[in-house]
Design a protein around this nucleic acid. Structure first.
Length: 277
DNA sequence: AGGCAGGCTTTTA
DNA sequence: TAAAAGCCTGCC
């Protein structure tokens, strides 16, 4: 179905923004897999998109997934006119949105992400999905599309099967997370009702989850747009561009959106272009 | 107690 | 060979 979108919306930038790992260029559009849903979507004009799904699927899932009720143009409009670096980063990243993704899928994805680059993260996740995720459908060229595995599906994997996904030392973190969800130790969906501080505290107790991964989970899995994950790229930006400190107070409650612009810009040679590297 | 160094698996460039 | 959307453990 054809959807008109009058706001920031750039499929290529979202795909490359590092917040999702099963969102890839496919033919003249993008193949998007989230939880147990799959979508083919393409741009047909700057404000019109073809979503290859039913109206029910769009209304009940994809509209929320793409966070279409929030104006990212307005959020960009909050940027300090005197912050030249953030202005450039946001102009470069115009079109990025923060997707509403599943807490379980994000938790496992960002546990896997630690000390891996994005292609390696994607490869590991896709292997895991193909290994135990149930088949959703076939795409246009006949490849199977697999749902993200449930906690039960991951828990029943042998050590050998898990390690075949290239998880390395993270395999035990992934298994423990699945077991914690199954035995009720980690009630990821109930945690949506916790305060920011309590949510962070619970996440940090999970094996293999530190401050960085917890912030990614809070931003991308719980869609709390103020969370500001600090990875190696962001730390370089903060050190070189904001030696006196980033103005977190000003951008509350949207610091996480600013983080995405800074991350995307720095990774796309933004920092190198500034002569820092 | 809280901070820090070293180790960890694998993939990518 | 170094670096990659880091975290855990042990030592001080």
């Amino acid at each position: 179905m054809k959807i008109k979108i009058d706001d920031d919306f750039d499929l290529e930038k979202i795909a490359d923004s590092g917040q999702c790992f099963r969102f890839n260029k496919f033919g003249d559009g993008y193949s998007v897999t989230a939880s147990d849903k799959h979508l083919f979507v393409k741009e047909i004009s700057p404000s019109e998109y073809e979503f290859d799904c039913s109206k029910d699927d769009f209304d009940n899932f994809w509209k929320s997934y793409f966070d279409l009720d929030v104006s990212y143009r307005d959020i960009r409009g909050r940027i300090d006119k005197d912050d030249e670096y953030l202005k450039r980063a946001a102009a470069y990243g115009e079109g990025i949105r923060i997707l509403r993704q599943d807490p379980w899928e994000m938790l496992i994805s960002f546990i896997i992400s630690q000390r891996k680059n994005i292609p390696a993260i994607k490869a590991s996740i896709e292997k895991l999905c193909a290994l135990v995720g149930h088949k959703i459908e076939k795409n246009a060229i006949g490849d199977n599309i697999y749902a993200f595995p449930t906690p039960g599906e991951i828990a029943k994997l042998s050590d050998k099967e898990l390690s075949s996904c290239g998880l390395g030392y993270r395999d035990k973190y992934v298994r423990k997370a699945a077991l914690d969800v199954l035995n009720g130790e980690a009630e990821l969906y109930k945690w949506q009702n916790l305060t920011d501080d309590d949510l962070m505290e619970r996440l940090l107790k999970l094996f293999g989850v530190g401050v960085k991964v917890a912030n990614c989970e809070i931003l991308f899995g719980y869609h709390r747009l103020d969370a500001f994950p600090k990875d190696v790229w962001i730390n370089r930006v903060l050190e070189s561009k904001y030696p006196k400190g980033f103005n977190f107070e000003r951008y509350k409650p949207y610091n996480g959106v600013m983080q995405q612009y800074l991350f995307f810009y720095s990774r796309s040679n933004g920092v190198a272009q500034e002569g820092i590297l």
